[in-house]
Design a binder for these strands. Sequence first.
DNA 1: CGCTCTTA
DNA 2: TAAGAGCGG
Length: 328
Amino acid sequence: MGNADLRQLAALEPASFDDLGGSVVAVDAHNWLYRYLTTTVRFTSSNAYTTTDGEEVANLVGAVQGLPKFFEHDVTPVFVFDGGVTELKDDEVGRRREQRERYEDELDEARAADDVDAAEVATLESRTQRLTETIQRTTRGLLDRLDVPYVEAPAEGEAQAAHMARYGDADYVGSEDYDALLLGAPQTLRGLTSSGDPERMDFEATLERHDLTWEGLVDAAVLVGTDFNDGIDGVGPKTAVKLIHEHGDLLAALAAREETIPHADRIRAMFLDPTVTDDYDYDPDIDPDLEGAKRFVTDEWEVPESEVDRGFERIEESVVQAGLDRWT
DNA sequence: CGCTCTTA
DNA sequence: TAAGAGCGG
């Protein structure tokens, strides 16, 4: 089902914000926003973040709360947004639609179950729920005013972020998702949204640890199960790696166990050869317009000042601090 | 998602 | 020792 099983294979090391200063992190925007959307909206009244026109803008509260973390540690985020399906190839559109329908079926099932599992429903909702047009627009609007760079992915934001990191245009991918490893992101930071230091996930070290190639790692993951397929019953991370060592690749391993995984080759390609673009550009030098950003959030989008005061304060302090640092 | 417990 | 179910956050 999920891909938390990958944690068992991943080479993870505690990281310290102190060592991350000056680095650039390509952040999967959907993943990042969603973490704040679920917590912010769920544990407070969602009314507080709805405009008089009925637009939900909890994303603005979440973003203002989450951004100071980067500023305070002198880490430059580059947010990578998912692309619209209109720009994708036809077969890619079909795949996405199938995937989406899968999730929606699962969600319906989970909701209809005799004993409704709230956690599962929440997880599935997070995968089926698209960010609304307003959330897309207002998040970019806030980033524009804060001069925080962002990039538009042709398809999956996480794949684009991994691509940028692979080509050295970002030092890290920022995501909570272990999929970043399958997408070949050299270094991934997890835990950028929670308090405390993040952890670093190392791609090459992971391959070395298990004596696998990138293809082999992806094949093992497909055997265990990914977001795009159910794994083989009774096969966990350890067995999967063993099977790839014994049989060479996914198809041989499946043949040996007389199992099949529909569209196995397509699933591999989702990780090994995803739709990405080289047509991106960003300026990591950030010169935020704090007043403009505040007006945008509290006046234009009617978010109560009390909800974002502290966040803007923290951003302001870190900007002032950065200015002072240049003279010391 | 992470932790813990149960089962093979 | 590995896999998977169950549960809390």
